[in-house]
């Protein structure tokens, strides 16, 4: 990976421990050392982003990887809440989900997701996808100032 001067954090919102671990492993396989925080559901994700309770003082992430199938508050609702919050709406949200359903894709973009990625079943492809996310969002793209940790 190219050198990175900016310490950008990623928030992964994902309830399935298998997926969390897989994403971490994929980052590890790509030798990406971006700090990765994990929220297990939508409510926790918003608490984290709003620096409430135990999350007080946490820096804002530069990128959010959001699953859609979440307990308590689904990904769409989290996305809508983020985009409605002036303090958070500038953060790009990459929807990373198992779904390839057209209505999910439509809804995500309507709610201003930065992009929609269907998790490949094939792990090699998943690693490739993570590599691309990292390369594009954390290297190619210039993120807004507020997104820096």
């Amino acid at each position: 990976m190219p050198d990175r001067q900016r310490p950008i954090r990623i928030l992964l919102v994902e309830d399935n421990p298998g997926d969390v671990r897989l994403t971490i492993e994929a980052f590890k396989d790509n030798r990406v050392d971006t700090p990765l925080d994990v929220a297990r559901d939508g409510v926790e994700a918003l608490a984290y982003l709003r620096q409430e309770g135990i999350h007080a003082g946490e820096p804002l992430p530069g990128l959010i990887l959001l699953d859609l199938n979440l307990p308590r508050m689904d990904g769409g609702e989290v996305l809508a809440a983020i985009k409605a919050d002036p303090a958070l709406q500038h953060i790009p949200v990459v929807v990373l989900t198992t779904s390839r359903a057209e209505q999910d894709v439509q809804r995500a973009y309507l709610l201003q997701a930065a992009c929609f990625i269907t998790k490949p079943v094939d792990f090699e492809c998943f690693i490739q996808a993570v590599k691309l996310i990292d390369a594009f969002w954390l290297s190619v793209v210039t993120l807004p100032c507020g997104a820096r940790g």
Partner: peptide
Amino acid sequence: LRMVASYTQL
């Protein structure tokens, strides 16, 4: 399915 395939590959 993804879990089965991905972790086997891992």
